[in-house]
Structure formats: C-alpha cells, structure tokens
C-alpha cells in the first residue's frame, strides 16, 4: 500500500477553559491519498475546523500524530515546518476577513513566494503569479484591485490563488463556499476540482453542506462532538448510511423529488450536548432515537462493512 499523503494517528485537541476541558477533537484517525479528497462533515462546533487547523499546525495538538508522507510533522521545528507548509496550505471560510484589506490582489498572491524564498528574480515571480492567477480564473487586469473592490467569488479565487502559488500538494478547505451565493459556489467547486485534476492535489474539504461534499469528495468522514462517527467512501455514505446521526443528516437535506415528499423524516431533537468534560460513552446517545444501555459505554470505530467504519454500539 502506498503511503498516504496525510495521515493522523489518534489526533487530539483539547482546550482548557474556565469551566473545564473542552474536547474539540478526540482521537481522530484519517488518511488522505494523493489526488484524493476527504470531506469532513458535521454541524457547527463539532470540531471540524479545529481538526483542519490542528493538522496544519496553526494551533498545537494536545496528543497524537500528524503524518505528512509518513513523517510526523508535529515534531518538526519552525524551519522544517516552513518547508512542509509549502506543501500544505489552507483556504479559509470567510473571503472577507481572510484577505488583508491593505494589499492588492497581486501583492496578496505574491507574498507567499516572497516569504518562502524558493523563487528569486522579480520577472520569474511575476510570470509565475500571472500563471497562477490565470489558473484560478482571476482576470489579470484585476491584479491591482483591492479586496473590497471584488465580489465574494473573486475574493475566494484570490484566497485559492494565494494557497496555489506555492504549488502545494495538500489544501485544507475550511468551508470555502459556505459564504458564497449558490451560483458562485458551483464555480468555485468546479475550479477546485479542475485544479485537483490538473495538479494532482489532495483536499481536506470541511463543510456542513452535504450537497457540496457529495459533489467533491472521494471519502467522507462524519464528525459529531469531536469524534468520528462514520468514515467511508462517499458513495457508500450516501447509498448506505449506517450511523443514526449520518442518517439524520442525510434526511435533513431538502429534496425536490416529488415521490419522496410527505414521507416522514427522521429529524433530530434537542441540542448538541456540552463538549466540556463529556461523559464516557456515545456522545450522540442523548439525541439518538435508538439509544440503549449499551451506549453508555465507550464505543469504538469499527468496520461495519468493508471499508465502512462506524462508531455505534447498536449498528455494529
């Protein structure tokens, strides 16, 4: 088996708060192969963004490993990390706050190369930036505009160009389309997929929007309160969801299919429970219609079908 591009081993991120320890990310194991996309789905606050940021070391992990091509990057020092960061970039959710309002489009896209210093010579840098801008669908006559002069879609293209300019192999996309209009969402998603095809990129695609994730992912990981509840091929998740939470998520997607209209939906009641010092056992149990005594004990992620991992005592 080839080494995956990105792998996490029992990655854990806790936040100490005044009220106790917040378990944001709990023992996450994931693998992303070169050229593939992992969709990470879950409701807001389930730790999916924290997971992405911890993998990129934008914040320190509490425990566990993040392997990039088999090397644990959490042990690297700053200078070594800088080299790894050339291959691991991030696209942020909010195209408004993720671009420095005082820098022009050209400067925004150029800065990463200037910082990393892999390319010398103004002409070379400028040609490369032109190339990347074209690749990301940014008209060159926009180069001297400032972020406030662009619409959301173009801003997100700038954010993407800023990540792409270092020719990374892996990009964490943290809800890159959730702030955009639906028509523009499609443009950006298509752009992401085109880039993947051309450059062989891997994505970790964080979203709460199942339609988006279906469109783009090879594999999907469903998270609930910092834990993986289901992890399988995208098609399997949609065709054969096993975990009750995944089922609920899928059924919450609005449909225009008339034959399915009026069918009773399985909807979730109640709120996400408190992630501070959670009780052992299944964290979804308080909202789960199938919960029983078994769910009070910790349940592990197990293979329910070939390549289809589920963490549910009832379903295994």
């Amino acid at each position: 088996m080839p080494t995956p591009l990105i792998e996490t081993v029992n990655l854990r991120k806790y936040f100490r708060t005044g009220k106790g320890v917040l378990h944001a990310v709990e023992d996450i194991n994931l693998k992303i192969d070169p050229g593939k996309t992992l969709g990470v789905v879950g409701e807001s606050g389930c730790g999916k963004s924290t997971l992405g940021r911890t993998i990129l070391r934008l914040q320190p992990a509490t425990a566990g490993q993040v392997l990039y091509e088999g090397e644990d990057i959490l042990k690297l020092n700053k200078r070594q990390m800088r080299k790894i960061h050339l291959n691991m970039q991030m696209v942020f959710q909010d195209p408004y706050s993720s671009l420095d309002p005082r820098m022009s489009v050209r400067n925004l896209v150029t800065e990463p190369i200037e910082v990393c210093g892999t390319m010398k010579g103004k002409g070379e840098i400028s040609d490369w930036v032109d190339h990347i801008m074209e690749l990301c669908g940014l008209p060159l006559d926009h180069a001297n505009l400032y972020p406030h002069e662009l619409d959301g879609g173009l801003r997100q293209r700038v954010g993407l160009a800023r990540a792409m300019v270092l020719s990374p192999k892996f990009i964490v996309c943290d809800e890159p389309v959730s702030a955009l209009d639906v028509s523009i969402q499609a443009q950006i998603l298509n752009l992401l997929m085109d880039l993947q095809e051309q450059q062989g990129l891997s994505y970790m695609f964080i979203t709460h929007d199942l339609c988006v994730v279906k469109h783009i992912s090879d594999e999907i990981m469903v998270m609930y309160m910092g834990q993986t509840v289901e992890y399988a091929k995208a098609a399997d998740i949609f065709a054969n969801p096993i975990h009750p939470y995944t089922k609920a998520l899928l059924q919450s997607v609005p449909t225009i299919d008339l034959s399915r209209r009026g069918r009773e939906r399985f909807t979730l009641k109640g709120e996400v429970s408190n992630p501070i010092d959670p009780a052992p056992g299944c964290r979804f149990a308080p909202r789960c219609p199938y919960a029983c005594d078994k769910c009070k004990e910790a349940c592990e992620l197990k293979e329910a079908a070939p390549g289809h991992l589920v963490a549910c005592a009832m379903c295994q």
């Binding site: 800088r82 960061h85 990393c116 270092l166």
Partner: peptide, 17 residues
C-alpha cells in the same frame, strides 16, 4: 486572530513580517 494573519502564518511569515 484575524484570518489573514492566520493565513500569513500558514505560508510561513515570521512574526516580525
């Protein structure tokens, strides 16, 4: 904690820069 500062950290900007 603004996102563009975070992005700058991500592409290896030093604190001074």
């Amino acid at each position: 904690n603004v996102e563009y500062v975070e992005a700058a950290k991500c592409y290896g900007c030093s604190s001074l820069r």
